[in-house]
Simulated assay, not measured.
Amino acid sequence: MKIAIDGPSGSGKSSVSRAVASRLGYAYLDTGAMYRAACWLMLDRGVTDDDEVTALIRSAELEPGTDPDHESIAVNGRDVTTAIREDRVTSAVSKVATNLDVRTLLIAEQRRLIAEHAEPGIVAEGRDITTVVAPDAEVRLLLTAREEARLARRARELHGTADADSLAATRESIVGRDAKDSTVATFETASDGVHTLDSSSLTLEETIQAVMDLVADAHED
Rank of each mutant, 00 (worst) to 15 (best):
H219S: 15
I107F: 08
V96F: 12
L141Y: 03
L143I: 09
D213Y: 11
A162I: 11
R88Q: 05
I174W: 01
Y28A: 03
I3K: 06
P135N: 05
L143K: 08
V194R: 05
T90M: 04
A162G: 10
S173D: 14
E172G: 12
G126P: 01
H219F: 15
A210M: 14
V123L: 14
L41R: 09
V123F: 12
A118Q: 13
T207F: 13
L105A: 03
M42A: 15
T66W: 01
E157D: 10
A145H: 12
S72N: 01
L202V: 02
T189F: 14
S14P: 06
E71M: 04
V75R: 00
A124M: 02
S191R: 10
D181Q: 15
D181R: 15
V194G: 08
T144P: 15
I174F: 04
A97M: 11
G25E: 00
D79V: 07
S22W: 07
S91Q: 06
E206T: 11
S72C: 02
A60R: 04
T81V: 08
V123D: 09
R36E: 04
A169C: 07
A162W: 05
T31E: 03
E52I: 06
E125R: 04
Y35H: 11
T161L: 01
A124P: 01
L167G: 07
L100N: 06
L56N: 10
I57M: 09
R177S: 14
L56A: 11
E109N: 09
A145I: 11
V75F: 01
T203M: 11
K95I: 02
P120D: 13
P135K: 08
G25Y: 00
L29K: 12
R153Q: 14
D165T: 12
F187P: 02
R111P: 03
R150N: 10
A185P: 09
